[in-house]
């Protein structure tokens, strides 16, 4: 089976001073870098929907940014279809798209104008892009006048749908979805989730889905990893990570030592990774 995403011993830390490398050594104040990813290793097979679940600040977005070529790793390896994210970013960018938790647009421009701009960057002429934009947005429940109104006049949920459409527009072979349904109402969430499945099935796309929505992970993902404080603490199918009678959320608490979304005292309270069936001290 082809490996779509290969992450091996990946590390990333951020310095509070904002300085890196020699510059930090020469002019930086003595600050301690904050580790965002610690020796993360995972493999995503082609055509798979792979979920990464973790609380806020666990490192999900950092991982998504590295795979999307928006951040350079400090150590380790990250490859997309065999291309290194740092050295072959141009090749990767041609086959990848991403939805981030912030639906970011040129706010005064309409969804159509924003998406046509995006399409041109991906070498799609408007004559091809516009019908596809209309089709995808209609599929997600947006059509008619809102297509030509400034994005700033749309609700947060509608903007997020447009962001999803922007990512799907370019028919990427790898989709990095960083909490794509955050802020959506339940019906919209189901629309987007159904669309993700449909795209995977019909376009042979691989999906790397970052989420803290356990239901979403259980519903969509073939396999998943639990990321906590920058470390992968468990990987497997959603069914295999949960012990009999346990929900995924229970499994998350067992594996990380805290509830999803509870980031207080995580570092001091978090015990070593525990597998299914293992008991925590």
């Amino acid at each position: 089976m082809t490996t779509a995403v290969e992450i091996v011993d990946l590390e990333k830390a951020f310095d509070p001073s904002g300085l890196v490398g020699e510059l930090r050594r020469v002019v930086g104040r003595p600050t301690t870098p904050v580790a965002a990813l610690r020796r993360v290793t995972l493999h995503v097979a082609r055509g798979e929907i792979y979920g990464v679940v973790g609380s806020n600040g666990s490192g999900k977005s950092t991982l998504a940014r590295i795979v999307a070529t928006l951040l350079t790793p400090d150590a380790g390896r990250a490859r997309v279809f065999g291309h290194d994210v740092e050295r072959k970013s141009a090749e990767i960018r041609r086959m990848l798209n991403r939805v981030s938790v912030d639906a970011s647009f040129f706010k005064k421009l309409s969804p159509l104008e924003n998406l046509v701009f995006s399409a041109r960057l991906y070498d799609l002429p408007p004559s091809t892009a516009e019908p596809r934009v209309r089709e995808i947005l209609q599929r997600l429940g947006i059509s008619g006048a809102p297509l030509n109104r400034p994005v700033e006049q749309m609700s947060r949920g509608m903007q997020q749908k447009v962001a999803v459409a922007r990512a799907f527009l370019t028919a990427p072979v790898l989709l990095v979805l960083d909490e794509p349904t955050t802020g959506l109402d339940p019906a919209s969430k189901r629309d987007v989730q159904a669309f993700i499945q449909e795209v995977r099935d019909s376009h042979d796309a691989t999906v790397l889905l970052m989420s803290h929505d356990m239901d979403e992970i259980a519903r969509l993902c073939d396999r998943m990893a639990v990321l906590d404080d920058g470390r992968i603490v468990a990987q497997g199918t959603p069914a295999s990570l949960a012990a009999p009678g346990e929900t995924l959320e229970d499994a998350f608490i067992r594996l990380t030592g805290h509830a999803l979304g509870d980031t207080t005292n995580r570092r001091t309270e978090r015990a070593e990774p525990a597998g299914v069936g293992e008991t925590r001290p």
Partner: peptide, 14 residues
């Protein structure tokens, strides 16, 4: 300011 910098920089255009 618009928040679009990441989506623009992630595009395959030079």
């Amino acid at each position: 300011w618009e928040g679009t910098i990441e989506s623009t920089f992630m595009a395959p255009a030079r």
